[in-house]
Simulated scan of single mutants.
Amino acid sequence: MRVLAAMSGGVDSAVAAARAVDAGHDVTGVHLALSANPQAYRTGARGCCTLEDSRDARRAADVLDIPFYVWDMAEEFREDVVDDFVAEYAAGRTPNPCLRCNEKIKFAAVLDRARALGFDAVVTGHHARLSDGVLRRSVDLAKDQSYVLAVLRPDQLAGAMFPLGDTTKSEVRAEAARRGLAVADKPDSHDICFIADGDTRGFLARELGEAPGDIVDAESGEVLGRHDGAYAYTVGQRKGLGLGRPAPDGRPRYVLSITPVQNTVTVGPVEALEVDEVRADRPVWTNGSPDAAFDCRVQLRAHGAVFDATVQPTADGLVARLAEPARGVAPGQAIVVYRPDPAGDVVLGSATITEAVRTATV
């Protein structure tokens, strides 16, 4: 097959491309330039999408002796990932930009362009397993990325290859060293690539401007403090609340909800974070839409805990009833639905969380 290898400049994508070559595919490497000003994105070990990463990807392609190109995707990335990120925070939600990048950039814009150019598939270094259209967790659960891939439609999965799903991260690094790839010891990227200094609050303030409002106690309705922008907070947050006085019982307070219309942040005790029902819209099902309730497992944020649940499909989404309460479930995040399987949990689909509530009495 003619395969396009998306090469980020990291060790995972380099080894994935190498395995595609070993499998006998006709491989071309491509690095995605996601910023009109790459110096504005992170450097070194702090992120991805930098000039350094582009050079590392090119060197890896040279070692593999495959053609290599750089595709300018800055405009698409700004519109579909960065602008979406800002808009979601402005609406009081907490988005996952890596999930959106996979959905809109790597497996929409890139896959569409690759197919138009005659490629059969796009190969990436994601840690997940894919076989006959079935997406499963990676064998390396600590590095599993099936959560951020669960937004992919069946037709997109049909054009994807994830060669590293059966390999641990330490094994990937050892293989890269054996192959003579200079990125073998390159640190993993962290946080959000388009926030150069890692200051999400500062980035949002620059994008949205200051919007002062009240921080309110959930139980008494009392105003406990002020904020410069509700977008700087997320459900479940404990630190950085800037409250003028402690709770009467001395226990810490947590962000319970964000109301953009009133521009208020509501806080309360940790127990008030507990929810047992999650509602979501914009569903994506990997193998056909279910038409009845079913038992499953759900994950409510990247690298978060997994909960047994019963999922009920709805006209525009789903409702998940959790067997045990979860805390800190934020609107805007994805709920990913898995079918338990001894060979590795299978991704059934995903949706975007709109609301999480407590229905059971304590």
Rank of each mutant, 00 (worst) to 15 (best):
residue 17 A to H: 02
residue 18 A to Q: 05
residue 18 A to W: 02
residue 18 A to P: 03
residue 18 A to T: 04
residue 19 R to Y: 05
residue 19 R to H: 10
residue 20 A to V: 03
residue 20 A to T: 01
residue 21 V to E: 04
residue 23 A to S: 14
residue 24 G to D: 12
residue 24 G to P: 03
residue 24 G to V: 06
residue 26 D to E: 14
residue 27 V to M: 06
residue 28 T to D: 00
residue 28 T to M: 03
residue 28 T to Q: 06
residue 29 G to T: 05
residue 29 G to N: 05
residue 29 G to Q: 04
residue 30 V to F: 11
residue 31 H to K: 06
residue 32 L to F: 02
residue 34 L to R: 01
residue 35 S to K: 02
residue 35 S to C: 05
residue 36 A to I: 00
residue 37 N to K: 12
residue 38 P to M: 07
residue 39 Q to L: 12
residue 40 A to E: 12
residue 43 T to D: 13
residue 43 T to G: 14
residue 44 G to H: 03
residue 45 A to N: 15
residue 47 G to P: 04
residue 47 G to H: 04
residue 47 G to K: 09
residue 48 C to F: 05
residue 49 C to N: 13
residue 49 C to D: 15
residue 50 T to F: 07
residue 50 T to W: 08
residue 51 L to T: 02
residue 52 E to R: 05
residue 52 E to V: 03
residue 53 D to R: 03
residue 54 S to W: 09
residue 56 D to E: 09
residue 56 D to C: 04
residue 57 A to F: 03
residue 57 A to M: 07
residue 58 R to C: 10
residue 58 R to E: 15
residue 60 A to V: 00
residue 60 A to C: 07
residue 62 D to R: 12
residue 63 V to D: 05
residue 63 V to I: 12
residue 67 P to Q: 12
residue 67 P to H: 09
residue 68 F to P: 07
residue 68 F to N: 06
residue 68 F to K: 08
residue 69 Y to S: 07
residue 71 W to A: 13
residue 71 W to D: 08
residue 71 W to V: 06
residue 71 W to N: 07
residue 72 D to H: 10
residue 72 D to Q: 07
residue 73 M to Y: 13
residue 74 A to Y: 01
residue 74 A to N: 02
residue 76 E to G: 07
residue 76 E to V: 10
residue 78 R to T: 14
residue 80 D to E: 15
residue 82 V to E: 05
residue 82 V to W: 04
residue 82 V to G: 03
residue 83 D to Q: 11
residue 84 D to A: 09
residue 84 D to Y: 14
residue 86 V to R: 02
residue 87 A to E: 09
residue 87 A to I: 01
residue 88 E to L: 14
residue 88 E to G: 11
residue 88 E to V: 15
residue 89 Y to G: 01
residue 89 Y to S: 05
residue 89 Y to A: 04
residue 91 A to T: 04
residue 91 A to W: 04
residue 94 T to S: 14
residue 96 N to G: 08
residue 96 N to H: 13
residue 97 P to E: 12
residue 98 C to S: 15
residue 102 N to S: 11
residue 102 N to G: 04
residue 103 E to R: 14
residue 103 E to A: 14
residue 104 K to M: 15
residue 104 K to P: 06
residue 106 K to H: 12
residue 108 A to T: 11
residue 109 A to G: 09
residue 110 V to Q: 15
residue 110 V to C: 14
residue 112 D to F: 05
residue 114 A to M: 03
residue 114 A to Q: 04
residue 114 A to F: 02
residue 115 R to E: 10
residue 115 R to W: 08
residue 117 L to W: 12
residue 118 G to Q: 13
residue 119 F to Y: 15
residue 119 F to D: 08
residue 120 D to A: 11
residue 122 V to R: 01
residue 123 V to L: 14
residue 125 G to A: 11
residue 125 G to D: 06
residue 125 G to P: 08
residue 125 G to L: 04
residue 126 H to Y: 09
residue 127 H to C: 06
residue 127 H to K: 07
